[in-house]
């Protein structure tokens, strides 16, 4: 069953059109890789899904509800959890405070997040500003999980992190997929790592979705043409 569906979506930043015709279909429990080179509209698509940017054309449907009239906090309450690009934890709050500030009832709580990221449990009383980049990324994922979402969006979740930490993040994503059945949209440049978790992929080119399909069907020609790899 489709959890999230974007049809013919267009969006603008002021007078500048950023998205022209984006299609995306995400099933319940599926992991989708949203791919494309820099500036092709990946983060803009995420902003539209999270309602930080209103689309002008097309339709965005989440769990059979049209997101068109929703505000960002209403979309989040409807079950969309975002791990934003650049992490952006609340620097003056401790790890525990970052987590409970956003908490809503459900399976994810301090204990279950602590099991997924034991490093966070060890640093509960530490200010987020004093965490390493990898720990901040874990905190950003934990904070999104504490809202008990049905859809988790990871925007450049491993960018700028050390290889060991990246591995830890990817393992966590794989665990989320295997153990919780959470629907996930992942934006990342590492095709090799994405191949380990993604069921399907959408490639954006100049604000348009130019390729949709099962991740396993991605050919070298396609990645070479649209991603330059």
């Amino acid at each position: 069953m489709s959890l999230l569906k974007l049809s013919h979506v267009s969006a603008f930043y002021g007078p500048s059109q950023a998205l022209f015709d984006v299609h995306l279909n995400l099933a319940e429990g599926e992991v989708l890789a949203l791919m494309g080179r820099n500036g092709m509209g990946k983060s803009t698509t995420v902003k539209v899904i999270c309602r930080m940017l209103k689309h002008r054309g097309g339709q965005v449907v989440f769990d059979r509800n049209d997101l068109g009239a929703m505000r960002p906090h209403q979309a989040a309450r409807a079950g969309i959890g975002l791990v934003p690009e650049g992490r952006r934890c609340f620097p003056n709050l401790t790890v525990r405070e970052n987590l409970i500030a956003a908490a809503r009832p459900g399976a994810w709580d301090l204990e279950t997040v602590g099991k997924l990221f034991p490093r966070l449990s060890e640093r509960h009383d530490q200010k987020a500003a004093l965490l390493s980049g990898g720990e901040q990324q874990m905190l950003a994922i934990g904070r999104a999980l504490m809202t008990n979402p049905r859809l988790l969006i990871l925007d450049e979740a491993t960018e700028g992190l050390a290889p060991v930490i990246r591995q830890e993040i990817w393992q966590a994503v794989a665990r989320l997929k295997a153990e919780t059945g959470l629907s996930i949209i992942v934006i990342d440049k590492s095709i090799r790592e994405l191949a380990g978790v993604a069921d399907s992929a959408v490639i954006l080119e100049k604000g348009r979705s130019v390729w949709n399909g099962a991740f396993g069907d991605l050919t070298h020609d396609v990645t070479d043409k649209y991603l330059g790899v």
């Binding site: 930080m52 505000r71 960002p72 906090h73 209403q74 989040a76 309450r77 975002l82 952006r88 809503r104």
Partner: peptide
């Protein structure tokens, strides 16, 4: 913006 993204008005 981040607070809105976690569902708080």
């Amino acid at each position: 913006e981040r607070v809105q993204a976690v569902g708080i008005g």
